[in-house]
């Protein structure tokens, strides 16, 4: 690892510890400010004065907020993320299982996303700017992004699952017993996610490509008589990738924790759904752990993206 890269990583890691601490304080404070408490959310309509009192005592909800936060923080520093107030079981196995599911879905979605979005961006840039192909690609991608994910998801289910029967409508991972079955099970959610993600990366790639293609060194390469494909891929693309990488990183972060709607439509037990459900139950230890894991993955993804940008972009490598 080169020295500037090492310095970048070191500084970022220090900063990210501070960010994680700040996240935990903010999340805890917000949950304290929200109306209602865990006992009310668990009992819901069945709550009686008696049952609320018993449950509050069992969950130690009466203790001051600062004390509860301090105890939680102390536990975390010892690697103990606490016990879910709702499940009454340790938080960590839940986080691990849901994070695993989210990473699996995100990973497969990215495998399709990166070549698809960058490829379409390149294709747009390779043809005439605002020509029929370029316009058609952009319009289709923007349409896919504009439709809410639950609409795309339900339409895909009704066509590809209910009518044609090619893929299962629900992504029931527990029933997929082979690699092929996992891919088939996750196909519809992955497709839905790509509808939402493609446009941004595609536009970034395309616009950066058009900028780079106008630069002197690319014209020079073209004038030297190099083949068009060679100029596009080897001369223009590497210097046009930086904005695309940042856009992909943004999408990757979203995939890990922000795809609640898709997780609900396909009944997929991901981290986003765990977080949202925990918020509705006021399950503070579960919320804290989910929020920390999500923040950590955002930080990691962004760091990885910055490193990739430095490594892949010739201009930055030289400097």
């Amino acid at each position: 690892m080169s020295r500037p890269l090492a310095r970048l990583v070191g500084a970022r890691l220090l900063l990210s510890l501070l960010s994680l601490f700040a996240v935990s304080v903010i999340v805890f404070a917000v949950m304290e400010a929200l109306p209602g408490d865990t006992a009310q959310r668990i009992l819901g309509r069945d709550a009686t004065a008696q049952s609320l009192a018993v449950l509050r005592a069992q969950l130690h909800l009466e203790r001051p907020a600062v004390e509860r936060y301090g105890e939680w923080l102390g536990g975390v520093l010892h690697g103990d993320f606490g016990t879910s107030l709702v499940a009454r079981r340790p938080v960590l196995p839940y986080i691990a299982a849901h994070l695993g599911n989210s990473l699996l879905l995100a990973g497969i979605a990215l495998v399709l996303h990166i070549p698809l979005a960058v490829g379409l961006g390149l294709l747009g840039a390779a043809t005439r700017r605002d020509g029929p192909i370029d316009t058609a690609i952009s319009a289709a991608a923007l349409l896919g992004m504009s439709l809410p994910e639950f609409v795309v998801g339900i339409v895909l289910i009704s066509i590809l699952a209910t009518t044609l029967g090619w893929f299962p409508p629900l992504a029931l991972l527990d029933e997929a017993h082979s690699v092929g079955a996992v891919i088939s099970t996750l196909f519809l959610p992955v497709l839905t996610l790509n509808f939402a993600m493609t446009a941004y990366v595609l536009r970034q790639t395309r616009n950066a490509m058009f900028d780079v293609l106008r630069s002197d060194y690319v014209r020079m390469a073209t004038l030297r008589g190099l083949p068009r494909g060679h100029v596009l891929l080897h001369h223009a693309l590497p210097n046009a990738l930086a904005p695309a990488i940042n856009a992909i990183a943004l999408n990757a972060g979203w995939l890990v924790g922000g795809v609640v709607v898709v997780e609900v439509v396909f009944n997929y037990p991901g981290l986003g759904r765990l977080l949202v459900e925990s918020i509705s139950f006021h399950d503070v230890p579960m919320i804290q752990a989910s929020a920390l894991v999500l923040s950590a993955s955002y930080i990691t993804i962004n760091l990885a993206a910055d490193m990739a940008t430095v490594l892949l972009t010739p201009k930055l490598r030289v400097n």
Binding site: T162, P169, L172, V265
Partner: peptide, 18 residues
């Protein structure tokens, strides 16, 4: 036993024999 909150997904799962 599963809980499937989304109405259209639940119907689709029944139709697809899930």
């Amino acid at each position: 036993l599963r809980g499937i909150a989304e109405d259209s997904s639940r119907v689709a799962a029944l139709l697809a024999n899930q």
